[in-house]
Design a protein around this nucleic acid. Structure first.
Lengths: 125, 125
DNA sequence: TTCTTATTTAAGCAAATGCTTAAATAAGTT
DNA sequence: AACTTATTTAAGCATTTGCTTAAATAAGAA
């Protein structure tokens, strides 16, 4: 966008716009981090993985492959993304690696879980 | 994935895996809807738009273009996605269209907002 | 009507995403 | 050591995403 004054309107609230710009700048890092996390959870497979880890405490790629009905490499690549952003962590036990949610990001994820659990209870009860 | 029994391990908890599968199936629609919404908010520009609408009640594409420092068509296309999934709605006033958050999806969005507001307050105070 | 302004839409394109298959690691067993 | 199993990594590829520019709508003003 090389033309910076795209809007020529009269009724623009200059102060409001400046305040908003400043707010965005101030919270720049928070927006970037949060949108990054939401983008991770915005993939249906990864959202399911997160939810499964919440419910089952820990699962290995093999389990997840069985549960989700998709190939191990596909699962593994999703796990990698989650691990790279510190959402999950792995613990080795022999050949098997058990993944679990990291407490760190949990407060932000809980609201989603709650939403799904409610639906689940409605159906099962 | 044509090879269905990718995992040959002995220690798989058959019951656990079946329960998980069933849970996923039961909540299939919820996962799809939720991940759809999270994917929308997972884009940094759209997350900012949602937050701005929460703070300012309503804004036109022109305002958003100024605030975000990006072209009007780019903003418009983000607004369209948000509108298509019923996250925002528009109200016409002359040539201007004011967009605002729909109450419907608000409970799910609030937790994100809270997270950003906290950071904002920490910095400004 | 003609002209201006606000917004949307469409076409094009580079970059990102998410799978696939095949090969590479890593640990355990024989 | 050789063999099996669990997992990761890499390369390839079709699809999606998010911008750009240019054109199309929609409403108001001259």
């Amino acid at each position: 966008m090389e033309n910076n004054q795209s809007c020529i309107r009269v009724f623009a609230d200059k102060v409001q716009i400046d305040n908003c710009r400043e707010m965005l700048q101030t919270n720049d890092k928070a927006f970037s981090q949060l949108s990054g996390l939401l983008a991770l959870a915005g993939n249906e497979v990864r959202l399911k993985i997160l939810f499964l880890l919440e419910e089952e405490k820990e699962l290995c790629p093999c389990d997840l492959s069985d549960i989700l009905g998709m190939s191990i490499p596909a699962v593994s690549q999703h796990l990698r993304k989650l691990k790279d952003k510190n959402v999950i962590e792995g613990r080795r036990e022999g050949q098997t690696i058990f993944y679990s949610l990291r407490q760190e990001q949990l407060p932000l994820l809980q609201p989603f879980f709650k939403h799904i659990i409610i639906n689940s209870k409605r159906v099962t009860i």
